[in-house]
Nucleic acid binder design. Structure first.
Length: 395
DNA sequence: AATGCTCTCAACCGCGGCATT
DNA sequence: AAATGCCGCGGTTGAGAGCAT
């Protein structure tokens, strides 16, 4: 047996709202509030609308301080970051962007941002492929000139140029790599990172009304510390506290605009918020972080293959930055740290470039044999049960 | 100017979660 | 414990604006 309809479908108007309807609804809510019952509200004010329709109209259009269109670069960054972190949980993402509605963000992502990323990625790939080809030619030339004896200084230079790009990077579940030095695939998004979520419950934004706020509070201190490390700052009233749930009318956290903050130390941290979203072993079952990545990958792939004329080079030629020295290790116990507790090692077969590319050849730099990682920097999130292990090659 | 196509975004739909009875 | 009702969310649709031919 199905659910009873929330309203009499035959007697409700559907479609665009008239200015009169808007005025009625707005005036009533501003004077009386919603009364906690959207279903009963339209009858009270004589609107032939479904209660859900009224709610949507109010939340997405009529309520104060709504911003429409004109997303800034910073907002783009936040949306992308959060999408990578938590997937299509638009209400939570909207809670981080005062004045934006989940519907707006969802539309913006689906119609523009996704395509924008794809377009930029194409350009990047073409440029990177060309650069790699040139580099390979140089190497071949050098090898020939020296009777196949590779000069130590060449090895050192190349190894150095590669490994420094990896230093302290973090491979996130799903293969997305956080990099404080290099975020090559979203060139317009200076430092896209999977961003923790702050319950910025302000500006009449009721969206992030998660019932397990108490659980969140446990994570709050770490989140805040992390965000501060990233260069953000909280309002004066919030500084020194551990609460991220605020009722202040101004944003209690300001995302860092200067993203050059990302030092190695920045990632020596915990990401407890991810535990909130049931992060599991990478590639095993749906994880929240994986969700965003995998979904994005699928979406972008579909975009590509549904349009063969724009097919993207799949030769894996520019993947250097995402392979080789990174591993993610699932640790046996959620509280264990350090090496020696690994139970599963996931080879890195997809980087951020997997946002577009489906299958990669196993990427081993042609000088890879000369690099033997011997120092592992472990970044573990106890909530994840993961160790983020970056293999830093000492020079 | 007319037509067709693409894109945007407001609005709808159905489902899951939660509270209440 | 089960039934009921409401809320909130994410996915999807379709009207209309804008653009290309």
């Amino acid at each position: 047996m199905g659910r009873a309809p929330c309203c009499d479908k035959a007697n409700v108007k559907k479609g665009p709202w008239s200015p009169e309807e808007d005025a009625k609804l707005k005036a009533y809510i501003e004077q009386n509030g919603t009364g906690g019952n959207w279903i009963a509200l339209p009858q009270k004010i004589g609107l032939k609308r479904c209660g859900k329709s009224c709610r949507l109209r109010w939340l997405n259009y009529l309520r104060p301080n709504i911003k429409h269109g004109g997303f800034s670069e910073e907002e783009d960054n936040i949306i992308c970051s959060l999408y990578l972190s938590i997937g299509s949980r638009w209400s939570i993402i909207a809670a981080q962007l005062p004045g934006r509605t989940d519907n707006d963000i969802k539309n913006y992502w689906n119609t523009r941002l996704k395509k924008k990323l794809l377009g930029k990625q194409r350009k990047e790939q073409a440029a990177a492929a060309a650069a790699n080809q040139a580099a390979a030619a140089r190497r071949a030339n050098n090898n020939n000139n020296n009777n196949n004896v590779i000069k130590p200084e060449i090895i050192k230079r190349e190894a150095s140029s590669t490994t420094t790009a990896f230093d302290h990077n973090i491979l996130l579940p799903g293969g997305f790599m956080m990099s404080h030095q290099r975020v090559p695939y979203w060139p317009e998004l200076p430092a896209v990172t999977a961003m923790p979520v702050v319950n910025n419950n302000n500006n009449n934004n009721h969206y992030y009304n998660v019932s397990d706020q108490l659980k969140d509070q446990e994570a709050a201190a770490s989140i805040k510390n992390f965000l501060i490390k990233l260069g953000g700052r909280f309002s004066e009233t919030e500084s020194g506290t551990t609460s991220t749930t605020t009722t202040t009318s101004t944003p209690d956290f300001q995302y860092p605009l200067d993203q050059s903050y990302q030092t190695a130390a920045s990632f020596d941290h915990q990401w407890p918020i991810m535990g909130q979203y049931e992060v599991e072993a990478s590639g095993v079952g749906p994880t929240s972080m994986d969700h965003g990545l995998e979904k994005l990958q699928a979406e972008l792939s579909q975009l590509i293959y549904s349009n063969p004329a724009q097919e993207i080079l799949l030769d894996g030629s520019d993947h250097e930055g995402f392979y080789g020295s990174m591993e993610m290790v699932k640790v046996a116990g959620s509280s264990s740290t350090g090496s020696g507790t690994s139970t599963t090692t996931n080879s890195v077969d997809s980087g951020i470039s997997s946002l577009v590319n489906i299958n990669y050849p196993s990427m081993v730099p042609d000088y890879g044999n000369y690099q033997q990682p011997h120092d592992h920097h472990h970044h573990q999130d106890s909530a994840f049960g993961y160790v983020f292990k970056s293999n830093v090659i000492n020079s």
